[in-house]
Amino acid sequence: MVTEDEVQLRTDNVCLRFGVVKALDGISLDVKPHQLLAIIGPNGAGKTCLFNVINGFYRPQEGEVYFEGQRITQLPPYKIAKLGISRTFQAIQLYHGLSVVDNIMVGRHIHLKSGMVSGAIYFGWAQREEAEHRKEVEWLIDFLELTSVRNRIVGSLPYGLQKRIDLGRALALEPKLLLLDEPMAGMSRDEKEAMARFILDVVEMRGITIVLVEHDMGVVMDIADRVVVFDYGHKIADGLPEEIRNNEQVIKAYLGKPKEA
């Protein structure tokens, strides 16, 4: 058993129902710091629902979510973000009217201090702050290889780049825990490899804990430290990638039956 201080995120018997549909049925999960945990499962298994519960979009009917020992179940999403939980979306959710730089600058929101008045005056304090945080943003833009599109409006950029901007914005918040919802969905082989490299680099450089939802088993088995499998709102398996690969129940629910010889 892990002790309390070794667990960064804990969901305790979380149940989420929409009418009679049980989207999550008693999900208990411990995520240790600096770990890359992958959640897999068929469509509708409740993976994204769990993300929405963790970052406060949904309130579970039962169960609690703890982040670094603090109960966050009833907090609104923007307060959970301030604690250091950031996420990306399966369907890209960017600010279409802003440039790449400004999108990622929004990710710095909780780290900037200037309010309405200092913003209105701008010169001096707000300007200095703006330039300071630009450094961090430009570092991310370099890291994610977005330099050439830095000042473009994001609405017109291709899908793969938008996915990266989404990741950049989530990283700009300097999260302790990052929830990635299918970061590689709909990508080409090359783009997937690039994205996997970004994720692994982030874990190594920043020591962020990552919870990843992904369908590409190859990617998951390669990069995850631990894999959790969902099916119909239940957790059906939890273990090292090799264990999961050979787990009977998982094979039945998700990977498909091996061909009879």
């Binding site: 970052n55 979009f57 609104p76 999403p77 923007y78 973000a81 950031s86 996420r87 979306f89 959710q93 960017l94 600010y95 279409h96 009217g97 802003l98 400004d102 600058m105 929004v106 929101h109 900037l112 200037s114 309010g115 309405m116 200092s118 913003g119 209105a120 701008y122 707000a126 702050e129 703006e130």
Partner: peptide, 19 residues
């Protein structure tokens, strides 16, 4: 500045602004 970017974030995508 920060306030204006937050305004646009709320306008363009409220859930994404919240997170």
């Amino acid at each position: 500045s920060r306030t204006g970017r937050a305004f646009v974030a709320v306008r363009d995508n409220e859930p994404a602004a919240t997170i």
